[in-house]
């Protein structure tokens, strides 16, 4: 059986926001080390990999591998019934076909209980190679969100060029073109806003902005985002969750121009 408790329902709500644009239904794979989700979008262009480690919950119990097949639209409906600050407990029995969700107000004077019907989802597991990337850029997640939003006014594609000097995002469309360059900043006062670049060799890649805008739904989960890139391979966009795990997105680049 599974029993996992989070001090704030807000976290699961935010996680759902971060993946529900990409994936309609997926397995939440639970085992004694935590809860993992790996799902590709229907067009096989993007993949989301989510990890919530057991020690991020208090308590967490799961004594065997338990894949919970969940329709995210249905889960979203039930999570709308939770207050952001509610204590959230999820439970599932080994042979059950429902996920129990309990929302408890902080002062424990209101307890609501819901059951979500589970489904059998036959999904293939993908091995993601441990890759050495040519360029790894760590930057403010809010800044990345703003750049994606701003450049989506110009085009549905974004070109990312990374050099020693900085990272340049550019877009070119019918109305004209635009770009935003962030220089590597070593001495800013606010660490959250710094841009750091680890570069083996310069990269230039083109991506669909639509997908980046789906990824930036994860912005509330972390003040930082890490973009890992090599030419001609999928970009890894990672949001680390404090003491809990991560949300990673992989996106295939656009080819030829």
């Amino acid at each position: 059986m599974l029993e996992a408790r989070l001090p704030q329902a807000k976290l699961l709500k935010s996680l759902l926001e971060a993946i529900k644009e990409l994936v309609v239904e997926c397995n939440f794979d639970c085992n004694d080390s935590g809860i993992a989700v790996q799902a590709m979008d229907s067009s096989h262009v993007a993949l989301v990999a989510l990890l919530l480690r057991a020690d991020g919950f208090d308590p967490y119990r799961c004594d065997r591998n338990l894949p919970l097949g969940i329709n995210l639209t249905s889960l979203n409906k039930i999570l709308k019934c939770a207050g952001n600050e509610d204590i959230l407990t999820i439970k599932a029995s080994d042979d059950g076909d429902v996920l129990n969700l309990v929302f408890e107000s902080k002062d424990s004077d209101r307890i609501s209980e819901y059951e979500l019907k589970l489904m059998d989802i036959d999904s293939e597991h993908l091995g993601i190679p441990d890759t050495q990337y040519d360029a790894v850029v760590s930057m403010s997640s809010g800044e990345f969100q703003r750049i994606c939003r701003d450049l989506s006014q110009i085009s549905d594609s974004i070109v990312i060029d990374v050099t020693k000097e900085g990272i340049k995002f550019s877009a070119s469309g019918e109305v004209g073109n635009g770009s935003v360059t962030l220089k590597q900043s070593g001495s800013v006062d606010r660490e959250d806003e710094a841009t750091t670049i680890e570069l083996q060799q310069a990269v230039s890649l083109t991506f669909s902005l639509k997908y980046f805008q789906y990824f930036t739904k994860a912005t509330p989960l972390s003040s930082r985002v890490v973009l890992s890139m090599s030419n001609d391979v999928p970009i890894l966009v990672e949001y680390k969750l404090d003491n809990l795990g991560y949300v990673r997105y992989y996106l295939a680049p656009k080819i030829g121009d």
Partner: peptide
């Protein structure tokens, strides 16, 4: 114009 690549082939099916 650039065409959208796919993830197939980058990852191995386990």
């Amino acid at each position: 114009t650039a065409t959208q690549g796919r993830l197939d082939g980058f990852f191995t099916v386990l």
